[in-house]
Design a protein around this nucleic acid. Structure first.
Lengths: 100, 100
DNA sequence: TGAATATATCGTCATACGTTCATACAATTG
DNA sequence: CAATTGTATGAACGTATGACGATATATTCA
């Protein structure tokens, strides 16, 4: 009996929406990369993850749609970065749980 | 360029597995309740959430299978509690992001 | 304008998930 | 042991998700 949070239904839905959007190894890795580098081009991410171009694009687009990432075009290139600030905190949160 | 985490593939998979298991409004609410009360019987949870018995049971079972919850029987009743310690930290984590 | 590069989108398939209903199992009580 | 209460399980259904390949769009450069 620690805390009384009383989180609203709407907020619980938004939370689960965000969690769903990042609950995937590739997406977590993208977030990890963007935390480290701040901003990365699609091609750079692709090289670091060695996954198919269209698959990466899907993951990026979905996270962008959910407001987790944002992108800026510079010429031919699109640069992605984290727009939902502090979402990287998920790594600390998970780290505190005794995973594995 | 804040942190270099270098989280292993295995760990990313485990993390996403856990996130998937909680990324649902009902499940988040169950976790919230169990954080507040420590332990609750199935019937008590059901009354608080006003959802169908079998639906609740499914959610509880799945989170138990993933090691997020655990249960103890006392007579006819089953009491659930959080077994993945610090998972409630997810609420603080989400709270820090500017959701809504 | 045509070719090259960078990225998104579409169609399809397989698989997973959430919900409901019906039923089964467990423990207790009469 | 029959009835009752508490909880889980399994089948069935609709829907969402992830992966892949092919194609489309955007930008630049020759």
């Amino acid at each position: 009996m620690l805390t009384k949070r009383n989180i609203s239904t709407v907020k619980l839905e938004k939370m689960s929406d965000i969690l769903k959007s990042i609950a995937h190894p590739i997406r977590l890795e993208i977030i990890e990369l963007l935390e480290e580098y701040g901003t990365l081009g699609v091609t750079e991410i692709q090289q670091k993850l060695t996954i198919e171009q269209s698959l990466l694009s899907h993951h990026l687009t979905k996270m962008k749609d959910k407001g987790i990432l944002s992108s800026v075009r510079e010429g031919k290139n699109l640069f992605y970065s984290i727009s939902l600030t502090h979402i990287e905190g998920i790594f600390d949160c998970m780290g505190k749980c005794d995973i594995d």
